[in-house]
């Protein structure tokens, strides 16, 4: 027998956990599923400086834990490290099989699976993943104590994490495809003045080379077309994210970039199915916008569940 919930939220990032806070406070029986530990992308962000309520920086991992603890305080069940092995979200009762052994179901589902770090997609990348190429500075920074490393990217993540990596590395060289950072001015300036940070502008990686582990990185200057080989001890890649749409692929239309279009209340063309957070088609993807999406999705789902409950159960 499947265990019954009012709302099942998939993805325990800021959007999903906010949805869970609102849903559980509305006394809906709420389950949150995540294949990792709670926090989404926030948990591997070394510090967050633009989330309101924290006049000092907050560590991403602490913010992630706080979101989760708050949802659990109101009764939401947050399941960690759980794998969805089957799912059917098309009907009035939406079902999931978990870890090939359990079943759960609910009339309303909020998909907040977010996005994951984008691969560069250049030669040698998959070969050297975990052998010199990393996507998580908090996880792997300490491997590069005293080393000379490179960071690819120029947005907030790339610049913030470069600053973090200077704690360990002897030097951090940022490789960016444009001639200026896309990151917020405050941290961009800090990076430009940091004694351990150097920037190579207008350049993109073309190939990763090495014998057993990564030794060299080949880059091309996109303006001059000049190709250079750089010796490196490690490369961190922060070039944005790709949506995790696996759960709704084939059920909901995706835009050309793989994001899901929703109504203003986060509803989709499938009744009872909502999409919130970075997975949604929208212009700005921030923790604050994810939190807003989660709120709206939960309020909409709450109304949907109330309207669709069998009369006897009301």
């Amino acid at each position: 027998m499947a265990e019954k919930y009012d709302v099942i939220v998939v993805g325990a990032g800021p959007a999903g956990l906010t949805a869970a806070i609102y849903a559980s406070r509305a006394r809906l029986k709420t389950l949150v599923l995540d294949e990792s530990v709670p926090g989404g992308q926030v948990k591997t962000t070394h510090k967050v400086s633009n989330y309101p309520g924290f006049p000092e920086d907050v560590k991403g991992t602490d913010l992630a834990k706080a979101f989760s603890a708050q949802a659990e305080r109101f009764g939401a069940k947050v399941r960690r490290a759980v794998e969805i092995t089957k799912h059917d979200l098309s009907g009035p009762v939406k079902r999931f099989e978990l870890d090939e052994e359990e079943e759960v179901e609910a009339p309303a589902v909020i998909v907040a699976t977010g996005a994951k770090p984008r691969d560069l997609g250049v030669a040698g990348e998959s070969r050297f993943k975990g052998r010199g190429i990393s996507y998580c500075a908090t996880c792997d920074g300490a491997y590069f104590e005293g080393k000379d490393i490179h960071v690819v990217g120029g947005g907030n993540s790339a610049v913030e994490e470069s600053l973090f990596l200077t704690q360990f590395a002897r030097s951090v060289t940022i490789i960016h495809q444009f001639d200026h950072f896309q990151a917020e001015a405050a941290i961009a300036e800090e990076a430009l003045h940091h004694p351990k940070i150097k920037v190579i502008w207008d350049s993109e990686p073309r190939e990763f080379l090495g014998e057993k582990g990564l030794d060299k990185l080949k880059i091309e200057n996109v303006k001059t077309k000049e190709v250079t080989e750089l010796a490196t001890d490690g490369v961190f890649v922060f070039i944005g994210y790709v949506p995790r749409a696996d759960l709704v692929k084939g059920l909901l239309p995706l835009n050309p970039w793989g994001y899901v279009e929703t109504q203003e209340d986060m509803s989709t063309q499938v009744p009872g199915l909502y999409v919130a957070g970075d997975l949604r088609q929208k212009k700005f993807r921030q923790i604050t916008t994810a939190v807003a999406d989660g709120t709206i999705a939960a309020l909409a789902a709450q109304k949907y569940v109330k309207d669709h409950k069998p009369v006897a159960a009301r």
């Binding site: 090939e100 993943k129 052998r131 010199g132 990393s134 996880c139």
Partner: peptide, 30 residues
């Protein structure tokens, strides 16, 4: 072993590394 990231799972059979290493956030139970 050339491991530069956590977590990394390395598989051995009779002392020899075999198969592919698994790493990062997306390691699935399956």
């Amino acid at each position: 072993l050339g491991v530069t990231g956590s977590p990394t799972l390395v598989f051995f059979k009779n002392g020899q590394e075999v198969g592919e290493r698994l790493g990062g956030e997306d390691i699935k139970r399956t």
